[in-house]
Computed example of a mutant assay.
Amino acid sequence: MKTMIYMVRHGDSPKTEGNERTRGLTDKGRSDANRITELLRNEEIDTFVSSPYTRAVLTIEELAQSLGKEVLVVEDLKEMMFSSEDKIISYKVLYPSLENMFSDPDFSLPGGESSRICQKRSIGILKEILKKYRGQKVVIGTHGIVMTLMMGYFDSQYDLDFLLHTSKPDIYRMEFNEEDLIGTERMWN
């Protein structure tokens, strides 16, 4: 029985307000969330699951509401923890560290988590989703690194280069037979 997973990377988010957990969407991010609603409205989505971070929830919330569904928030779908305080990490600090994060699965920023730990927690949730919602269509509101690590678990082409060429937002429809990835299609343009 086939299960469809729609990885929806969050829309544009300001790096100047709140912390990693609470920052929302920019005007562009909100506009793109409307486009996501239009793009996925007819996909007959059964279930919506999201990272607890505001920007991820807001990116899929309108679509869920338009279909009379709720967004189920799952803590372990949160973005990679870059520090112990959920503080916003600037791109100047993050981007030079990405190569280390992807080449050494045990590398982490001080107080943060490694890609190995992040992948383990997020894949655990994805496998639960594949089991619990078998045969359904599930949207996952997610983040760039977490999305890449989950997709990379099933197919090594989803690596740092892939991450650096994704957009905010982005959408990938993944087709599974049980836990076997059959195919992936990018839906955002």
Rank of each mutant, 00 (worst) to 15 (best):
E178A: 14
P105F: 09
D161L: 02
G68I: 11
H10L: 01
G29M: 05
S122N: 05
A56N: 07
A56H: 07
V146Y: 02
K137M: 00
E85P: 08
E70T: 11
A64Q: 02
E99W: 05
L58P: 06
Q136M: 02
G183C: 11
T22W: 04
M81G: 09
L58A: 13
G11Y: 14
I182G: 03
E62C: 00
T54Y: 08
M80L: 15
P105M: 09
G183P: 08
S156I: 14
S13V: 13
S51K: 11
R41A: 15
M151K: 09
Y133E: 05
G29C: 04
K137Y: 09
V71Q: 04
K69F: 04
Q136D: 03
K92F: 12
I5K: 02
R23Q: 03
N189D: 12
V73F: 07
Q65L: 08
L39I: 15
D76N: 14
S51C: 04
D32G: 04
L160I: 10
T22A: 03
K131Y: 13
H143M: 01
R173Y: 08
S97E: 09
D155A: 04
A56S: 12
I117R: 01
H165L: 07
L39Y: 13
V57M: 05
L77P: 15
L160W: 02
E75K: 12
H165C: 10
G112E: 11
S51P: 04
Y95N: 10
D86N: 15
E20G: 02
R30Q: 12
V71L: 00
R41L: 15
K120C: 12
Y91C: 07
S103R: 14
E20K: 08
T148K: 00
L25S: 06
K132Q: 15
P105R: 10
I145S: 03
